[in-house]
Amino acid sequence: MNWSKMKQQLEGFLYPALAGRVAYIATSYRYTPEKAGQCYLTVDKKKVFNMKDATTGIRWFQSEQEIKGDSNLNIPVSQDDIEKVRKDMGEKVPEERLVVIAKDRKLQSYAKEMIAAQTALSKADFNTVANTFLTRSIEESLASQDILLNVLALVDRRVGKKRILDMENKMKLKHPIVQYFYKLRRNAL
C-alpha cells in the first residue's frame, strides 16, 4: 500500500479529540536510494516518536542495568509474585526480603522485554508495522509486545473510554513512549 493511502487510513482511525494533534509524517529521498526515509509521529507539530532520533525526549534505554536503575520506574508487585518467591526460596527468608526479591525478578523480566521491544522496533519498518495494524484487530494490537502497534492502538477511536481507564496498571509496565501516548489519550477523554 502506498504511503498516502496508508496515512489516510491511519488518520481516519484517530480518536476525534486527537485528530489534528497527532500526525504521521514520512520523508523519503527519491534520487538517493541508499538513503532510507524516515517515518515519525508528531503531537502538536512536535516530533515525539522517531526511533532513530535522540532528540525526541523519550528515553531509549541502552542496557538492562539502565532500566533497573531508573528511579522513575514503579513496578507493582502482587501477592502472587511474593508467593512464587517464597515457594522458590523456602520459608527461611524474611517477609520484607521476599518483597525485594519479587520486585527485582519482575524488574529484570521487564527490562529484558523492554530491550527486546526496542531492538525489534529499531529494525522494523514503519510501513510494515502500520500495515499489520490496519489488518489486525484492535485487541491484538493492544496486547502486542510491539511498541509501535501499542501506540497506534492507543490513539485509535475504536478503543473506548472504559478500556482506556482499565489499562492504567498495564501501562506502568510499557515503554515510556507507550506511556506518553496513553497519557495523551487519557487526557483527551
Rank of each mutant, 00 (worst) to 15 (best):
I115Q: 05
L107V: 11
K45S: 13
V159L: 10
K161W: 09
D156H: 08
Q79C: 03
A54N: 12
L142A: 00
V93P: 00
E91K: 10
K170V: 08
N72T: 05
T42C: 12
I58E: 02
K45P: 09
E95K: 14
W60L: 13
I58K: 00
I58C: 06
I115L: 14
N169W: 00
K47Y: 01
I82S: 01
G90L: 00
K47F: 01
V43W: 06
S71K: 09
E83M: 12
A54M: 09
I147E: 10
A54H: 12
N150W: 03
K47N: 10
K112T: 11
K68C: 10
E96D: 06
E95T: 04
V100L: 11
A117M: 03
L41N: 06
E113C: 08
A54D: 13
E139I: 14
S137Q: 07
D70R: 04
F49H: 12
C39A: 15
K52D: 13
T32S: 10
W60H: 13
M167Q: 06
R97S: 09
K87S: 06
R105W: 06
R157N: 14
V85Q: 02
R105Y: 06
R136H: 15
V77R: 01
L134I: 04
K84H: 07
F61P: 04
I115E: 01
Q38F: 09
K103R: 14
A116P: 02
L152I: 03
K162P: 01
R157C: 09
I164Y: 01
I82V: 12
R163G: 00
V129S: 07
K161H: 08
A117T: 09
K35Q: 13
L165M: 11
V159G: 02
R97P: 02
V155K: 10
Y40G: 03
L134D: 09
I164G: 03
I147G: 03
G90V: 00
A117G: 08
L41D: 07
L154P: 02
E34D: 12
V151N: 04
M89R: 12
E66F: 04
R97H: 08
N127T: 15
M89Q: 10
M51F: 13
L121Q: 12
K52Y: 13
A102H: 03
T135N: 15
T132R: 15
Q118W: 09
K170F: 08
Y31S: 11
G57M: 05
Y31N: 14
M167K: 01
D80T: 09
V129D: 04
Q108S: 14
A36H: 12
L149N: 03
G69K: 12
Q79D: 09
E140R: 13
Q62K: 15
L107A: 12
Q62I: 04
Y31P: 01
V85E: 03
T135R: 15
K46L: 08
K112E: 14
L165D: 10
D80Y: 06
